[in-house]
Design a protein around this nucleic acid. Structure first.
Length: 217
DNA sequence: ATCTCGATAGTCT
DNA sequence: GACTATCGAGATC
């Protein structure tokens, strides 16, 4: 498994291209608690000419990271309770970003379950039944099947806003796994983004055909 | 499976 | 004062 961070050049592609390229890449976060990782399964693209983008109305304290250099994490707080993780995917001041909406959990199931607040007895039961594909898929969606859930499972907060994703330590994104661990999903599906107004106007949500690790059908 | 609704607080008008 | 790049519970089919 090549867990080296994607280079800065990857993040210069713009949100539309990068959102597609990020599918099947591996999101990793290492803390004192341990390592968690997952295969990116759902993304959305946001560009400054789009009224739904935080960067549409110009730079503010909240969205400043989006206006910064490529390859950094833009983390924001929303609905009074949740955080969302984006990757900045444009040159300084261009303010394009990709929202990471879901991953397929790879490493750190127990840690993610604990951070998500699952009861210990439930965690023990799930670890027992992990061999069953059905259980694993459902549990996976519970852990990281949505942008808010994913940040909770990864323990990402505003403290992580602005982190450099190309350092290969702490928080980073690696290329898709190759060989036996490679993803079986390849065909990219396009759909309306979630939770925004006029969602039908721009189809900039990206998933992989057949991939069960998504936030919504 | 699909829906409606409440929680909760930062941001912007 | 309104809105929000969300989630889970509870109701209903």
């Amino acid at each position: 498994l090549n867990n080296e961070a994607l280079p800065r050049s990857f993040y210069r592609q713009g949100a539309i291209v990068a959102a597609r390229s990020l599918l099947n890449c591996i999101l990793l976060h290492k803390t004192e608690e341990g390592l968690v990782s997952g295969r990116i399964s759902e993304t959305e693209a946001y560009t400054p000419d789009d009224p739904a983008s935080h960067s549409y109305r110009g730079k503010t304290a909240r969205n400043a990271t989006m206006f910064g250099p490529p390859g950094h994490a833009y983390v924001y707080f929303t609905y009074g309770m949740y955080h969302c993780l984006n990757a900045v995917t444009s040159e300084e001041n261009d303010a394009e970003a990709v929202l990471i909406r879901a991953v397929d959990p790879l490493e750190g199931w127990e840690l993610m379950s604990r951070r998500r607040g699952l009861p210990e007895v439930e965690i023990a039961r799930l670890l027992e039944a992990k061999a069953e594909a059905r259980t694993r898929e459902r549990w996976g969606r519970t852990l990281t099947g949505g942008p808010g859930k994913l940040c909770q499972a990864y323990a990402l907060t505003l403290a992580d806003n602005g982190l450099d994703l190309t350092s290969g330590k702490g928080l980073w994104i690696a290329p898709p796994a190759a060989g036996s661990g490679a993803s079986p999903y390849h065909e990219i599906c396009v759909s309306p983004r979630i939770g925004i107004r006029h969602s039908m106007e721009l189809l900039q949500r990206y998933t992989l055909r057949g991939d069960p690790y998504v936030s919504k059908k």
